[in-house]
Design a protein around this nucleic acid. Structure first.
Length: 465
RNA sequence: GUUCCCGUCGUCUAGACGGUCAGGACGCCUCUCUUUCAAGGAGGUAACGCCGGUUCGAGUCCGGCCGGGAAUACCA
């Protein structure tokens, strides 16, 4: 049996972080077992589905690098097939027409609730041996209901949660086609999973309650029941359920915030699944290790601090040239022209040790490309008398210094020694004059990258102030 | 209300068979390195929701409770 998993989002908004993790796990499971991963768009909710959302999902999957082997399939394009199956079920007696109106249903449920009962369809149109059905009313388009088994229970071995069993008595005859003939979600899923030969359904926790119904439908269809694995949800940083208000973050927000794809993937992989103590691993490793047994059943809280750490780990490992390509769009966002200064790769090499995200890296790169304004306050603090004299000398020395980090450093150290100063007494004023700030990479390295001409211009203007 | 799911450091988690000082990671704190700040190195802080039961022994098994979530739609 070859494994076939699927990701089946409904296109009602962007691909959010929870959906991304679900997709990642379903994808990894197929990869792990040499199977296929199918993308299916569940767009039967015509009211809420939009083409923009479809595009957003596709874009998100693409950024994540989660390639599907088949699809995307659209449920709206499968209507004839659903109708065909419904006709078959009507013939087979596993489904039936129900003429109860929505208003009647509401009244029924209200009455049941008033009596403290569980609201459910009472089966008034359900055919039974020896039962006389009501007369078919005029002018009502019937819905089609699934004839759910009466006794016993539905049970399955959930890949994440273990054995789950629900009594059929808890399940009523759900509607599988509306009055206008359009099929409903629980039914479409069954037909799709069946037709697409899905062997493993890895999806969100919110579908646990649908599972017994789907299993019953699948059985009525004579279909093979797939393995189900239900993932618990991801909570926001604050422990609250993710929603629009809570940065219910689209995955596409992550590249915009300067996160690397592999870092996001790694973080998501680790959020709810584990492989012993392993924290940092590649997607190749993940695909070899991933299994259902080590998925946590409980909800996970998203932790941006840890994502930042992981992202930084990845940034530190990325080649400067590659980082240059990655950070370029962020520089553009900040209106920094990277062609107006030193090669970007030299800058990223200096910065990668200290910036956890590409956005921070871009911000930190600013003074390489734009001469910083003199900061009077910092100059006053660091450009003090004993050092000032040495700095004037140093500027002269720099004119003939071989412009490499080592030689620049040697020149500074010579000046420190000659004037009996402490290292920071020269390093700090230089740092402030050259970069306009006090927290930067090693100042000799910065001067080297910036170039002699620009560096000296900045120092002179600082000394003259 | 009813059904189902979930409950280990602040956070992510390890935890086959019941016996571990309950381990790792992020964060935080301390020290260290140092050319500022980071990064790095070395330490430290901190958890089995509660109550019973079974057992020589329970995070692990059983029961109850509490807390959180989901479903109970002609949404998906």
């Amino acid at each position: 049996m070859t494994v076939r998993s699927r990701f089946a989002p409904s296109p009602t908004g962007y691909l959010h972080i929870g959906g991304a993790r679900t997709a990642l796990y379903a994808w990894a499971y197929a990869r792990r077992h040499g199977g296929q991963f199918i993308l299916r768009i569940e767009d039967t909710d015509v009211e809420r589905s939009t083409p923009e959302a479809v595009q957003a999902i596709v874009d998100g999957m693409q950024w994540l690098g989660l390639q599907h082997d088949e699809g995307p399939f659209f449920q709206m394009q499968r209507m004839p097939r659903y109708k065909e199956v419904i006709a078959q079920m009507l013939d087979a007696g596993t489904a039936y027409r129900c003429y109860t109106t929505p208003a009647e249903l509401d009244a029924l449920r209200d009455a049941q609730r008033a009596r403290g009962e569980k609201p459910r369809y009472d089966g008034r149109w359900r055919p039974e041996d020896g039962k006389t059905l009501p007369a078919v009313p005029e002018g009502i388009n019937p819905v089609i209901r699934f004839r759910n088994p009466i006794g016993g229970a539905v049970a399955w071995e959930d890949g994440v949660k273990g054995r789950i069993e629900i009594a059929n008595a808890e399940l009523d005859d759900l509607i599988i086609a509306r009055g206008d003939g359009t099929p409903t979600y629980n039914f479409c899923v069954c037909v799709d999973d069946w037709d697409m030969k899905i062997t493993h359904v890895i999806r969100g926790d919110d579908h646990v309650n649908n599972t017994p119904r789907q299993i019953n439908i699948l059985k009525a269809l004579g279909a093979e029941v797939p393995v189900y694995a239900h993932l618990s949800m991801i909570l926001g940083d604050d422990g609250q359920k993710l929603s629009k208000r809570h940065g219910a973050v689209s995955v596409m927000d992550y590249p915009a915030k300067g996160y690397l794809r592999d870092a996001v993937l790694n973080y998501l992989a680790r959020l709810g699944w584990s492989h012993g103590d392993d924290e940092v691993f590649s997607m190749e490793q993940f695909c070899q290790w991933f299994d259902l047994d080590h998925i946590t059943p409980s909800a996970a809280q998203f932790n941006t601090e840890k994502l930042n750490w992981l992202n930084h780990e990845y940034i530190k490992k990325t080649e400067p040239a590659e980082l240059a390509t990655l950070v370029a769009p962020h520089l553009a966002t900040l209106a920094i022209d990277a062609s107006s200064g030193p090669p970007l790769a030299r800058v990223t090499e200096l910065l990668r040790e200290r910036t956890p995200t590409l956005v921070e890296m871009a911000e930190a790169a600013r003074y390489f490309y734009l001469r910083p304004a003199l900061n009077a306050e910092l100059l006053k603090l660091h450009l003090v008398d004993p050092a000032k004299h040495a700095l004037y000398e140093l500027v002269n020395a720099f004119a003939s210094t071989n412009w490499t980090k080592a030689d620049i450093s040697a020149a500074i150290k010579a000046a420190v020694a000659k004037h009996a100063l402490k290292m920071p007494q020269l390093m700090m004023p230089l740092r402030v004059m050259v970069t306009g700030q006090t927290q930067t990479p090693a100042i000799d390295a910065i001067m080297d990258v910036l170039g002699r001409e620009e560096t000296l211009a900045r120092i002179k203007s600082g000394l003259a102030s």
